[in-house]
Design a protein around this nucleic acid. Sequence first.
DNA 1: CTAAACCTTCCACCACGGTGGAAGGTCAAG
DNA 2: CTTGACCTTCCACCGTGGTGGAAGGTTTAG
Lengths: 144, 144
Amino acid sequence: MKTLKIGELAGQAAVSPKAIRFYEAARVLPPPARGANGYRLYPADAVDMLRFIKQAQGLGLTLAEVKDIVAIRQGGRPPCRHVYRLLQEKARELDRKLSDLVMLRRRIRESLAAWGRRRARGAAVCPHIEAPVRPSRRRASRRG
Amino acid sequence: MKTLKIGELAGQAAVSPKAIRFYEAARVLPPPARGANGYRLYPADAVDMLRFIKQAQGLGLTLAEVKDIVAIRQGGRPPCRHVYRLLQEKARELDRKLSDLVMLRRRIRESLAAWGRRRARGAAVCPHIEAPVRPSRRRASRRG
DNA sequence: CTAAACCTTCCACCACGGTGGAAGGTCAAG
DNA sequence: CTTGACCTTCCACCGTGGTGGAAGGTTTAG
């Protein structure tokens, strides 16, 4: 089985070597084998692991939570019923978060729409950056 | 119009006075009026403002983002087209996040289900906390 | 008048999730 | 054999979103 050095793993999983060592220190990743030189040697599937971590984490899960989930996924002596409960709770929390997120998105869209209406009425939206929208003749200057 | 001292506002909005001062320093909340004694005096609707902040923030928006949104909601000289774009982008980001969240939830549920199946097969789920599930005769010791 | 409960500012510290850099060992190319 | 890219450890620091506490002024209750 081909093994990866930390830099190779980092490259393939699009994280920094630093972050990988950090995850190891945080017990999210198991400590890998070491070569005779002391270099970390990762199995190829560590890439998937890292990608999963990144995805879960990018969605608002803390590393601590990811750690527990990872432990289950790996199946080797999972941290017990406690973690099972934790995951159930997490799933419920996700449901709540989802519906809240939907509401927030609606509020944002409403704000945007309201602003659109104000512009349509010709209000001075942002005097020092762009002039009020005049009736007929769009084609505002394209300033960001 | 009745005004609130910071502690009263904090109580009604369920945040700490510290946090309120912090939001002010972070320019998320506008600096309120001051009494002759130097005390901050908030209008009653500051409560709604704080609740909105807490909700948005509790959904993964940063204070910086909340700040911009708040600026729009208040309508007084919103920070221009820039913010409009930011909110559009944010709405799209929310959509992505929503679908990712749905996927993550599914993965978690699958992990839970898989674990359930392992338990059903009688695997030693967590030897040092609860004994393997024996066929017939549930009623495991209730240790968390 | 006094004590408690507020309020003010300011500075330190916390957890989280890393990044940067120093000091040193190792490996591959020229 | 040197150079440079990599690897190792360790310690410091960053931004985010606050909290804690000191030092001092105010307001309120007894």
